[in-house]
Amino acid sequence: MNNFMEYWTNISSSHRVLILMGGMVFFWLVEGYYPLFKFSFNRFKHAGVNLVFLATTLVLNLIFGIFTIKVCSYVTEHNFGLLNLVEWPLWVEIVIGLLLMDFFGQYLPHRLMHKYKYLWKFHMVHHSDTKVDVTTGTRHHPGEWLLREATAILGIFLVGVPVGLYFLYRGCAALFTHFNHANIRVPLWIDKPISWIFVSPNMHKAHHHYKRPLTDTNYSNIFSVWDRLFGTFAYADPRELRYGLDVLDDKTDEDLGYQFRIPFDKSIKTDY
C-alpha cells in the first residue's frame, strides 16, 4: 500500500494524461460496440467539440494546478485537516480521503450549480449535449472548472489531503467520469448493485434527462452515498430518457461559439 501511494505522490504528468485519455479511448471504443442509444451523428465531430472544452480544462489545470499542489503541501507540512487529527491506517485514510473529496470536488459544487441561476448557466453547457457519450464528461465551461477547483481546494484544506491522495482522487474521478457518461448498455442486474455504493452509468444518465426533476438528481461522481444521504438519489429506465435541455434548441449543442457564450447571454432562458 505504501508503494501504491508512493507512485501517486510522484506520478508523472505523462501518466496522468495517459489515465485521462486512455480511459476515454477505452470507453469510446466500447460504446461503439455496445451502445445504449444508437445516435445518428458524426462521432468524430461530436468528440471534437467536447474535446475543445477538455483543452480549456487542461490549460486551466496547468495554470492553477500549482496552487492546488501547494495547498496539499501546506496541509501535510503543518499537519492540518481531518486526516492529520488521528493516526489512521493508510487504507482508511485513502477511503476517507476519496469519499470526502468526492463531496467537495463533485457533489457540493455540482449541487450549487443546479441551485443558483448564475452558476447554472455555466453548467448548462455540460447539460446541453444531446448525444451523451464518454466525451461529454469533458464538456465543462472554464467558469465551471473554476468553481469545482475552488471547492476541491477547500476540501483539501479541511480534510488535509496530501498530494498523492489528491492525484489518486483525480485519477479515480476521471475514470468514473468516463464510465458514467459512456453511451454503453449496462444490464439492470449489473447496474443497480453498482449504484448501491458507486455512481453507475444508468444512475448518472438520469441526471442528463432534458428536464426537471430528474436533472436535479445524482450529483456525485464516484460514490452514490452522498446522493442517498442528502435525498438527491434517483433511478430511471435509461431507455426512457432524452438528453439536452428543454430551454435550448438541440441544434446549438455543437455550436462552440454559442456554447461558450451561454453563461453571458441574457436572452438564453433558464427554468428558474
Rank of each mutant, 00 (worst) to 15 (best):
G81D: 00
V49R: 07
M101W: 09
L98A: 07
I66A: 07
E93F: 10
R111P: 01
S40K: 14
K117G: 14
I66R: 08
S40D: 14
F41R: 13
Y116F: 12
G105F: 02
W88E: 14
N84P: 03
T57D: 10
V71R: 00
F80V: 08
A55E: 03
L98T: 07
E87G: 15
E93H: 09
L60S: 00
F64L: 09
G97P: 10
T68R: 03
N61K: 15
F41Q: 14
L100G: 05
T56V: 11
V52Q: 05
T76A: 06
F104T: 04
L98G: 00
V49D: 11
L100E: 12
V92K: 10
S73W: 12
V95M: 03
K38H: 04
A47F: 11
F39R: 08
H46Y: 08
G81C: 01
E77H: 12
F67W: 09
L99Y: 03
I96E: 02
L60P: 02
S40C: 13
F44W: 12
D102A: 04
V75Y: 01
G81Y: 07
L60V: 07
K45V: 06
P109C: 12
Y118K: 14
K115W: 06
F64S: 08
H110V: 15
L83H: 08
F104I: 13
I96G: 04
K45F: 11
I69F: 13
Y118T: 14
S73H: 10
I69Y: 14
V86Q: 09
F41K: 15
L58R: 03
A55G: 10
L82E: 09
I94S: 03
G105W: 00
E87V: 15
V59A: 01
F103R: 10
K38I: 10
L100M: 13
F53P: 11
L36E: 04
F41Y: 08
A47M: 13
